[in-house]
Every structure is written in C-alpha cells, then in structure tokens.
Amino acid sequence: MKRWLAEGYETSSPGGTFDSVSERFLDRHLSPSQKAALLRALKDTQGIRYRGNAEDRAGRVGAASTVESRCGGLPKEQTLLFDPRNGNLLA
C-alpha cells in the first residue's frame, strides 16, 4: 500500500503520503480491505499522528490523523478525517 500511495510523487514524505491519500479517495472506490491497508500504512508512517476523534466543518465526527508538512511550499498542518464505521475519508 505504501508503494501504491507513493506512485507519481517525487517523495514518500509524510506530507506526500497525506496528499496521495486524499487524491486516491477522489478517483477510486476502495474495498474495505484496501481502506484498512491504507489506514495501517498511515499508522506506520513516521510523522503522521493519530489525534483521536475530531469534528469537521460539516459537523461530522471521525478519526483524525495529522501531519506537519512543507509539501507545496509553506509549512502547514494537514488533517485527514475518516469515518470510523467504514473507513471513508470525510474531510
């Protein structure tokens, strides 16, 4: 899964992995086992931190992971929010 997430990226940095996850969810339908593998890959990537439950702007609560990144230039903190029931990316 980590190799698949890194395909098409110049670096396999934590920030690049984060960007890849959001892009993969935009253009692919992942099976439950693929989603589980993707979440394990995030868990095993140094620099990505699980933050527990968080709420997005739409009021949805999910499992949040964050990374501090310089991908795209300026330093920033990115968050991915996953539905704990089915592993779908919420935000």
Rank of each mutant, 00 (worst) to 15 (best):
A6K: 02
A58T: 12
L30H: 11
R51S: 14
T45H: 07
R57N: 11
L90E: 03
S20Y: 02
F18T: 00
R51M: 13
G15I: 06
Q78G: 12
F82S: 10
P75I: 10
T45D: 04
S13V: 06
Q78H: 07
Q46T: 14
P32F: 07
K2Y: 00
F82N: 10
G62E: 06
G8Q: 05
R40T: 13
P75T: 11
R40A: 11
R49K: 07
A63P: 00
G59M: 02
D56F: 10
T17W: 00
G72M: 02
A64D: 14
T11Y: 09
E68W: 07
S20C: 01
G87I: 01
P75W: 04
C71R: 08
G16S: 13
D44V: 00
S31L: 09
R24V: 12
L90I: 08
D56C: 15
L74T: 11
F82E: 10
T66V: 08
S33L: 11
P14I: 06
F25V: 06
R70T: 15
T11N: 13
R28S: 15
L74I: 10
Y50W: 10
E10N: 08
R51Q: 15
R40C: 04
V67F: 01
E55P: 04
A91F: 03
Q46S: 15
R28N: 15
N88V: 00
L81V: 01
L39S: 04
S31G: 15
A58K: 12
L5I: 01
V61G: 06
D19G: 13
R70I: 12
P32C: 05
E77A: 13
A91Y: 05
A6R: 02
D83C: 11
R57E: 09
A36G: 05
S31T: 15
D56G: 12
S13E: 12
A54V: 01
L80N: 05
G62L: 04
W4S: 09
V67M: 05
A63Q: 14
T66E: 10
P75M: 09
R3G: 07
F25C: 08
E23M: 05
G59C: 07
R85I: 01
G87F: 02
Q34S: 14
Q78D: 14
G59A: 04
G16F: 01
G15D: 08
N53Y: 10
D44L: 07
R60N: 15
L89F: 03
L81M: 02
L5P: 10
M1D: 06
Q34K: 12
R60C: 06
R70V: 12
L81H: 02
Q34W: 02
N88R: 08
G8E: 08
Q78Y: 09
C71T: 08
A91R: 03
S12F: 02
Y9Q: 14
K2E: 05
G8F: 05
Y50K: 06
T11R: 13
T45Q: 14
D44G: 05
G16N: 06
A64P: 09
G16M: 00
G62I: 03
S65V: 10
L74F: 12
E68D: 15
L80A: 09
K43N: 08
N53T: 11
G8C: 04
D27G: 13
C71E: 09
Q46F: 04
G59K: 08
I48N: 00
A37P: 04
R3K: 04
F18W: 01
E7C: 03
